[in-house]
Amino acid sequence: MTDALTAGWEPAQPFMVRFDLFEPDPADTGRTRYSAVAPHWSAEAAERHVAMGFEAGWSAPADPSEAVAKRLAAGA
């Protein structure tokens, strides 16, 4: 995911590119490790993003996603 493009795929002044990663647990437990990484174009862009209050929301999708994954694993 990125904010480097606007509607119509027009280039924009970007803050970051976000990667959502789903990987097998290295301990081979059958579980999946989820991580999100958001590298920014510059330190200043990262600081602006934090100042805007986005940092707290970056991990917000993790808890609901975990709940859905547990329901799917349980066959619900």
Results as ranks from 00 to 15, higher is better:
42 S>C: 09
27 A>N: 10
22 F>Y: 15
50 V>S: 06
7 A>S: 12
16 M>W: 05
70 K>G: 01
24 P>R: 07
5 L>M: 12
65 S>I: 09
20 D>W: 10
14 P>T: 02
25 D>V: 05
58 W>V: 02
76 A>N: 09
1 M>T: 13
27 A>C: 04
47 E>N: 08
73 A>Y: 07
21 L>P: 00
5 L>C: 04
56 A>V: 12
44 E>M: 10
62 A>K: 02
54 F>D: 10
7 A>V: 12
4 A>I: 01
46 A>S: 08
62 A>Y: 13
16 M>Q: 04
32 T>W: 07
9 W>T: 04
9 W>C: 07
53 G>S: 07
31 R>T: 13
38 A>N: 03
22 F>K: 03
34 Y>W: 15
58 W>G: 00
18 R>M: 15
20 D>Q: 13
66 E>H: 09
44 E>K: 08
50 V>D: 13
40 H>M: 06
33 R>Y: 13
19 F>N: 06
45 A>H: 01
32 T>M: 08
20 D>L: 09
48 R>E: 11
18 R>L: 14
25 D>C: 14
37 V>M: 11
22 F>W: 15
61 P>S: 07
60 A>D: 10
17 V>G: 01
36 A>Y: 08
46 A>I: 00
29 T>N: 02
71 R>Y: 07
49 H>I: 01
30 G>W: 04
72 L>P: 01
56 A>H: 10
24 P>W: 04
53 G>K: 02
71 R>Q: 14
23 E>G: 08
21 L>E: 14
66 E>A: 14
37 V>C: 09
34 Y>A: 01
9 W>Q: 05
25 D>N: 14
57 G>W: 09
1 M>N: 11
70 K>D: 13
39 P>F: 05
12 A>R: 13
74 A>R: 05
45 A>Q: 03
59 S>V: 12
58 W>T: 01
2 T>P: 00
7 A>Q: 10
23 E>K: 11
57 G>P: 00
13 Q>H: 13
58 W>R: 00
22 F>Q: 12
16 M>L: 15
59 S>I: 08
66 E>M: 09
49 H>P: 00
68 V>Y: 09
34 Y>M: 10
51 A>Y: 10
50 V>K: 06
41 W>P: 00
47 E>S: 09
7 A>M: 07
27 A>M: 07
39 P>K: 01
61 P>A: 04
38 A>M: 04
59 S>K: 12
2 T>R: 06
31 R>F: 05
29 T>A: 08
32 T>Y: 05
39 P>C: 05
12 A>K: 12
19 F>C: 05
71 R>S: 13
35 S>T: 14
13 Q>A: 15
39 P>W: 03
41 W>V: 15
12 A>V: 09
26 P>M: 04
74 A>M: 07
6 T>P: 00
29 T>P: 00
7 A>C: 03
75 G>P: 00
6 T>K: 10
16 M>N: 01
54 F>M: 14
52 M>Y: 12
16 M>A: 11
47 E>F: 01
57 G>M: 06
42 S>A: 11
12 A>C: 11
58 W>F: 15
56 A>R: 12
12 A>Y: 07
57 G>I: 03
45 A>S: 12
72 L>E: 04
61 P>Y: 03
64 P>W: 03
22 F>G: 02
54 F>C: 12
45 A>N: 02
31 R>Q: 14
23 E>I: 11
67 A>F: 06
31 R>I: 02
1 M>A: 15
42 S>N: 09
3 D>M: 03
46 A>N: 01
65 S>Q: 12
75 G>F: 06
